[in-house]
Amino acid sequence: MAEHPAHGVRSEVGRLRTVMLHRPGNELRRLTPRNNDALLFDGLPWVDRAQDEHDAFADALRSRGVEVLYLSELLIETLADADARETAIAHTMTDLRLGDTLRAYLTALLHDKGPDELAEILMAGLRNDEVTNTGSVVAALHAPDDFLIDPLPNLLFTRDSSVWVGDRVTITSLAMPARVRETQLTELIYRFHPRFAGTEHIHGWDKEFLEGGDVLALAEGVLAIGVGERTRPAGAERLARTAFAEGLAHTVLAVPIDQDRATMHLDTICTMVDTDAMVMYPNVAHRLAAATIRPGDDDDLVVEPLRPFLDAAASAMGIDRLRLIDTGLDPVTAEREQWDDGNNTLAIEPRVAIAYERNVETNERLTAAGIEVVAISGSELGSGRGGPRCMSCPISRDAL
Rank of each mutant, 00 (worst) to 15 (best):
A375W: 02
A285E: 14
V284Q: 12
S315V: 11
W339Y: 14
V302D: 10
N363Y: 07
E364F: 09
R385D: 05
R358C: 09
I354D: 05
R358G: 05
S379C: 05
D274V: 08
R287Q: 14
R336N: 03
T345M: 07
P308E: 03
V302M: 01
N344E: 03
A369N: 14
P282K: 09
N359E: 01
Y281C: 12
E361D: 14
E364L: 12
G382L: 01
I325T: 13
A314R: 06
D340T: 10
N283S: 14
A353Y: 01
L310S: 09
G384N: 04
N344L: 05
S377I: 00
S383G: 01
Q338M: 11
G342V: 02
T327A: 13
E335W: 01
I376L: 03
P295S: 09
E364P: 06
D320Q: 12
D297L: 15
L322V: 13
G328W: 05
G387W: 00
P308R: 05
T327I: 15
E361T: 06
V279H: 09
V352A: 12
T362I: 04
L329M: 08
L366S: 02
R323A: 13
A291G: 01
V360T: 14
D341T: 06
D341G: 04
V373Q: 10
L381Q: 01
T275F: 08
V279R: 07
V302A: 12
G342N: 09
L329R: 14
N283W: 05
I293N: 03
D320N: 12
S315L: 05
